[in-house]
Computed example of a mutant assay.
Amino acid sequence: MNKFKAFFTFLAFIWLMSCGFLAIHGFLSDSRGVSNAAWFGLLINSWALPVWMLLRYRFSGNFTGDIRESGAFTAVLLGLAIVLLTDTERGWPIYLAIFNLFVLLIYLYHLSALSHPTLPAVNSLFPSLGIVGSGEGVPEGVSENEEKEHWQAVDYCRENQLSGVLLVFLRGSYCADSRNQVHHLRALLPELQRRNVGLVFWSTQPVRKWSQSLLGLNVGQLSGADTQNAPFVTRCGAPFLLQPWIRDAARPSAWLLDAEGYILWRELSVNYRVPVTAESLRSQLFRVED
């Protein structure tokens, strides 16, 4: 199912971009019965979501997504309104603009939605994770990506003398929402230090793929091939264009554990565009001291 979602998301963006180029062609050519204003409205309607997502990708620290992608949704409706008011002959712009609104809604509420399998419940022990090693001490003839290790929260807390640990699963460095989440979670570091709580980020990508966004933070790479990670990893969850190089993605979620590795609180994102916020995490940190 994830492979189909990635493919249809790719098709949806190709369709919207194509409609935009068609609108430019109609605007520049002499289209009988269709005003230039209608083609201009179709251009806004078609390119609103792609341009909005590009801005969020390039400036992830400044543009924050939400369940409706309010910026893109507003522009799509504005373009549709222009088309409805100006395309009095009911030409191609009015039909394409209405269909583009349908494509947008499908993307927002289905193609980017997440479904989580059965996961550990609150007050249960958090399972060990299969991770890819750092490469130190790798036997000769074995690549770094083949070196598998296991990580346990209780061992991590004991080694670092922590009262608890906060685990945040990130979809990937290619995801604007993951980078935006890391940017905002940096503000939690003083509060976490005061409460003696560790912070660990998990993704299916090597740390070097995150550039400077995770510099100085604890981050680990989940092994996509390890069956222990199946509840936390979406197979073929990466964007369609990246799947020749990046196939799997971590399901966005957050887990607050005590020093013994038991789950005090969790939040499972229902959409990869809306991961858990820093303020939501801040409001739950008191559980470590209870």
Results as ranks from 00 to 15, higher is better:
Leu189Val: 14
Phe201Thr: 06
Arg251Ala: 13
Trp210Ser: 04
Leu167Val: 01
Cys236Lys: 07
Gln212Met: 12
Ala249Leu: 03
Gln161Leu: 15
Leu185Tyr: 07
Asp177Ile: 00
Tyr262Met: 14
Trp245Ala: 14
Glu260Met: 00
Pro252Val: 09
Asp258Pro: 15
Ser173Asp: 10
Leu167His: 00
Pro190Ser: 06
Pro190His: 12
His184Phe: 01
Leu170Tyr: 07
Leu215Asn: 08
Ala249Ile: 03
Val165Ile: 08
Asp248Leu: 05
Arg247Tyr: 05
Leu241Trp: 02
Leu242Tyr: 04
Asn160Ile: 09
Pro231Asn: 12
Pro231Ala: 14
Ser203Lys: 04
Leu241Tyr: 05
Gly172Phe: 08
Tyr156Ala: 12
Leu257Gly: 06
Cys236Gln: 09
Ala259Ser: 11
Val233Phe: 05
Leu167Gly: 00
Leu256Phe: 07
Glu260Asp: 02
Arg247Ala: 00
Leu257Ser: 08
Asp177Ala: 03
Arg171Thr: 14
Leu222Gln: 09
Arg179Ala: 00
Gln221Asn: 00
Arg247Thr: 05
Leu222Tyr: 02
Gly220Trp: 09
Arg194Cys: 03
Val207Ser: 01
Asp258Leu: 15
Asn180Ile: 03
Arg179Glu: 00
Gly237Glu: 01
Ser223Pro: 11
Pro190Tyr: 04
Tyr174Ala: 09
Leu257Lys: 12
Pro252Cys: 09
Phe240Ile: 00
Gly172Glu: 05
Asn196Asp: 02
Ser173Asn: 11
Leu185Trp: 04
Gly164Arg: 03
Phe169Ile: 10
Cys157Phe: 06
Val219His: 15
Trp202Ser: 11
Asn160Gly: 10
Ala249Trp: 01
Asp155Met: 15
Pro206Gly: 09
Gln161Thr: 14
